[in-house]
């Protein structure tokens, strides 16, 4: 697990998404506001990989009682979720 301050959160998320979902694209090509599910053909199983990957990458636990997939629709939203958990 990398240190939470190691690199920009959005860039680390893009890299993680490309690796975990085996996307054959440049991580930088993912726009921070693009809807991942529609644009990158992310199904529920791959989205789960992204959530688990986010937890492992940043050492946080996001899958709690009030978890909502709405906070994982874009890189920007995931980054906000990460920052929220890191600041707790």
């Amino acid at each position: 697990m990398a240190d939470a301050s190691d690199g920009r959160i959005e860039d680390r998320l893009k890299q993680m998404i490309v690796e975990r979902c085996f996307l054959d694209i440049d991580p930088a090509s993912i726009e921070e506001n693009e809807p991942l599910i529609k644009r990158r053909d992310i199904d529920s199983l791959k989205l789960f990989e992204i959530v688990v990957g986010t937890e492992e990458e940043f050492g946080i636990s996001v899958m709690e009682e009030n978890f909502s997939v709405d906070s994982f629709r874009t890189v920007k939203e995931i980054a906000e979720c990460v920052r929220r958990h890191l600041s707790e």
Binding site: I37, S44, L45, L47, F48, V51, M63, F67, S68, V69
Partner: peptide, 11 residues
């Protein structure tokens, strides 16, 4: 169980 919860939220 969490994956199941997530899938239900999606579909």
């Amino acid at each position: 169980i969490k994956r199941q919860m997530m899938r239900r939220q999606l579909i």
